[in-house]
Design a protein around this nucleic acid. Structure first.
Lengths: 192, 192
DNA sequence: CGAGCGCTTGATTGAGTTCAAAAATCGTGG
DNA sequence: CCACGATTTTTGAACTCAATCAAGCGCTCG
């Protein structure tokens, strides 16, 4: 499982085998069976998850019991409730596995330890965080201005692999529409 | 104008008068007249703006020419295109003044200089950034799950002062609805 | 003081929801 | 490996919330 992480990091930052060994020690590998809930709303998040196989998601449950998916995390993505993890506040959302998955989990102090091993490690983590922020901004812009169909097309452009392996009702939940609407949109799109 | 910043910082971090003097030197005060555009989509953002008087906003213009407001920044708020500023990439949005305003503008290297003056300065800036991220997440959740009326009520709870001084069509633009709809929602809300 | 902008109100339209039921797919145990 | 039950997806019909189009009112500011 660590080799997935190694390949991922190669694209972001340079490091020696020794350094990577030290980084590997910051992670605990774990198999997660489909459906397992790793974090519940209200709990304090203790881990950051790097997904090496399968797929996780984060989501909220609204007052009517409806799920709204915030993020999908397939291979090479990380996921957690950043705010809860860093400030040790109650989490805003749930995290669970939507496929049989394998993750590398890291602790709250990961960032400091990572920076101690790799001088630009802090820089890199910050960049990743900025990217998340930018993605979230784009999503707001999309929700404000684009139709359901446009948002769907945007989604499959952005997450082509996720779009194929995830149940449609979850994509609908991510887009903020009903599964019925997504089904109809897909029919329209197929007939151009 | 610097005393507004001083009061603001007092609530976040402790510092001596000397330190504050050094911080003040990182900022350039500027009067901005209503309607002035400080950043355009596609430009590279060079400044972070801390608002000491008036109100700025950031917004995108979609393919149909419609504006969608991302953020309001009244007194004691900062605003910029973080991503553009830090990575020197083209900005995603516009920033302009919706009232006669006064701002303190800081350069790209502000964070390092600020950290050099105040040991926990970097920590503080990071916390502010995390808060922005959390706010953006909440907005996504709201857009996914709440009705226009619920979003409006949420808005006036979160920005009671902004709700009173900003034109309604801009609030509508922030909420992702038309001015007509907002007008009707307000009528409904008034009659309970 | 008039032109233009912002807000309101009304009538109509339309995108997406809800409810219901059938069709397709998945997963599990025998 | 098949069969059966459960879940997911599709389809249809009625409905609803918000958008669009259009007109009128009231400011303000030039």
């Amino acid at each position: 499982m660590l080799d997935v992480l190694k390949d991922y990091l190669r694209g972001k930052i340079s490091f020696t085998d020794e350094q990577f060994k030290a980084i590997g020690d910051l992670y605990t590998p774990k198999k997660i069976s489909k459906g397992t809930i790793l974090l519940r709303e209200g709990e304090v998040c203790q881990h950051n998850f790097f997904v090496t196989r399968g797929c996780l998601r984060s989501y909220v449950v609204d007052k009517n019991g409806k799920e709204h998916i915030i993020q999908f995390a397939p291979e090479n993505w990380w996921i957690s409730d950043q705010n809860s993890l860093l400030k040790q506040e109650p989490a805003m959302f749930f995290i669970d596995a939507i496929e049989e998955s394998e993750v590398l989990l890291s602790e709250r102090d990961f960032n400091e330890k990572f920076s101690a091993i790799l001088p630009n490690g802090g820089q890199m983590m910050q960049t990743l965080f900025h990217n998340s922020f930018k993605a979230m901004q784009k999503r707001v812009i999309n929700l404000l201005g684009a139709s359901a169909e446009e948002r769907y097309l945007e989604f499959i452009k952005l997450y082509p692999t996720v779009a194929l392996r995830v149940p449609q009702k979850m994509i609908a939940s991510y887009l903020g529409i009903t599964p019925e609407s997504l089904s109809r949109i897909r029919k329209d799109v197929a007939h151009q």
